[in-house]
Computed example of a mutant assay.
Amino acid sequence: MRRAVPFPRLQLYLSHREALIKYAARLLGSPAQAEDIVQEAWLRFDREAACQQPAGYLYRIVRNLAIDSSRHLQIEQRVDDADEHLASLAAPQHCPASAALYADQLRAMQQALDRLPPRTCDAFYLHRIEGLTLSQIATQLGISVGLTHQLVREALTRCAECLDE
Rank of each mutant, 00 (worst) to 15 (best):
Glu76Lys: 05
Ala112Gly: 02
Arg115Asp: 12
Cys121Glu: 09
Phe124Ser: 12
Val79Leu: 12
Gln110Ser: 10
Arg71His: 01
Leu106Ala: 14
Gln93Thr: 13
Leu86Glu: 05
Asp83Gln: 13
Ala90Arg: 11
His72Lys: 08
Pro117Thr: 07
Asp104Pro: 00
Asp104Met: 00
Ser98Tyr: 12
Tyr125Phe: 14
Gln77Pro: 08
Arg107His: 15
Ala82Val: 04
Phe124Val: 08
Tyr102Gln: 12
Leu116Ser: 05
Thr120Met: 02
Asp83Pro: 04
Asp114His: 07
Tyr102Leu: 15
Cys121Arg: 09
Ala87Ile: 03
Glu76Tyr: 01
Ala91Met: 05
Tyr125Cys: 12
Glu84Pro: 00
Ala91Cys: 01
Gln105Cys: 11
Glu76Thr: 03
Gln111Cys: 01
Tyr102Ser: 14
Asp104Cys: 02
Arg107Pro: 11
Gln93Pro: 02
Glu76Arg: 01
Arg71Gln: 04
Cys95Gly: 13
Ala90Ile: 11
Asp122Leu: 09
Gln110Asp: 13
Arg78Asn: 06
Ser98Cys: 14
Tyr125Gly: 01
Gln111His: 04
Glu84Val: 11
Gln74Arg: 07
Pro117Glu: 14
Cys95Val: 15
Ala123Ser: 03
Asp81Ile: 04
Tyr125Lys: 11
Asp80Trp: 07
Gln93Tyr: 10
Ala91Asp: 07
Ala112His: 05
Leu89Lys: 04
Arg119Cys: 03
Cys95Pro: 02
Asp114Ile: 05
Ala99Leu: 15
Leu73Gly: 00
Gln77Phe: 09
Leu113Val: 11
Asp114Ser: 08
Leu86Ala: 02
His94Pro: 08
Ile75Cys: 00
Arg119Asn: 07
Thr120Cys: 05
Asp80Glu: 13
Ser88Cys: 03
Gln105Lys: 08
Met109Cys: 14
Arg107Cys: 08
Gln74Asp: 09
Arg107Val: 11
Leu106Ser: 14
Pro92Asn: 09
Ala123Cys: 00
Glu84Arg: 10
Gln105Val: 02
Arg119Asp: 07
Ile75Gly: 00
Leu101Met: 12
Gln93Trp: 07
His72Gln: 08
Pro96Phe: 10
His94Asn: 15
His94Arg: 14
Glu84Asn: 01
Asp104Thr: 01
Pro117Leu: 13
Gln74Ile: 04
Asp80Val: 11
Leu101Gln: 11
Arg115Thr: 12
Asp81Val: 07
Ala99Arg: 14
Ala82Lys: 06
Asp80Asn: 11
Ala108Cys: 06
Gln93Asp: 10
Ala91Arg: 04
Ala100Ile: 13
Gln77Ser: 08
Val79Ala: 13
His85Trp: 08
Asp114Asn: 08
Asp80Arg: 15
Leu89Gln: 10
Val79Gly: 01
Asp80Gln: 14
Ala112Leu: 02
Gln105Tyr: 04
Arg107Thr: 15
Pro96Glu: 12
Gln74Glu: 09
Pro92Ile: 09
Ala90Met: 05
Asp81Met: 07
Asp104Val: 02
Ala103Ser: 11
Arg115Lys: 12
Leu89Cys: 03
Ala108Leu: 10
Ala87Cys: 03
Leu106Ile: 14
Ala100Lys: 11
Tyr102Asn: 08
Phe124Tyr: 15
Asp83Glu: 13
Phe124Asp: 10
Leu73Asn: 00
